[in-house]
Amino acid sequence: MIDFIRRLFSPKPNQPIVENATTAPLNESQIQSIISGATPRFDLQQLVAACGQSVGKQRELNEDSLLAITTTLAGNSGNTPFGLYIVADGMGGHQFGEVASNAAIRTVAGHVMRKFHPYLFNLKPEPLEESLQEIVLAAVTESQKVIQREAPGSGTTLTAALVLGQQMTIAHVGDSRACAIYNDGRIETLTRDHSLVKRLEELGHITPEEASNYPHRNVLYRALGQGEILEPDVFTIPFPSSGTLMICSDGLWGVVTETDLARIVREASSLPRACQGMVTAANTAGGPDNISVVLVQMTV
């Protein structure tokens, strides 16, 4: 009896499967779907970026700021992709939240771009004295001073990615996020939130489920403009070459699930449409906070 069942379900040996062995010509819709699915190819490696912003449905002010600069550095070692992408989220409970986020973006970008000015616009650039991490760290430290001077008492998050070639140097304070969205739908958060809830979660005091319902989810323990001691996270990692870099404020990541974010990127016909889709998704979910997002891809 058992032998009979086993024989019934076991694959028959020596019987080749022939149905799909031949290649039929593709029809028009199959060709279109392959074309739209493939990322556009360029013979030189370059960055493509898009951004989206919204004040949201429940706020009257936009306290987020963002910046996206994309170009290439031409030089002896070929064309090096260069990009600077920043999202800053000003602190609502404080005065001048939008002043702080704006000052953070301008100061950090200003400092970094001044360092790279000779590379972009001079014929014979002198080699940089500092390392990329030192430049980014100095930019954040400078913006800390500027915010304390220009908008005392205010604060802002800052997540900045300086992309140079295939490496990116990230500076991060607060709870905006840099994420890698891979083509298989996986999302990897590259930064660590400097929020009380995340800290409690890291220490094992609360579970991720409890964290998502934690009443003080928006309490930060580190923010630009706050405190005399500022220790931004600065690190360098490879750019997610087979995926998309996303930098966004909590108005997006706190509202739209990772699954939806990955789906939006996958289904959008272009990066600007993906940004638009994300902003719409956050607003559809209630839009409780300002929404800012930058998406960046490396084409090969």
């Binding site: 030089g75 090096t80 940089l128 295939q166």
Partner: peptide, 10 residues
Amino acid sequence: DAKNGWVVWR
């Protein structure tokens, strides 16, 4: 950076 010689950190 091995590709282009940029100093990432010191």
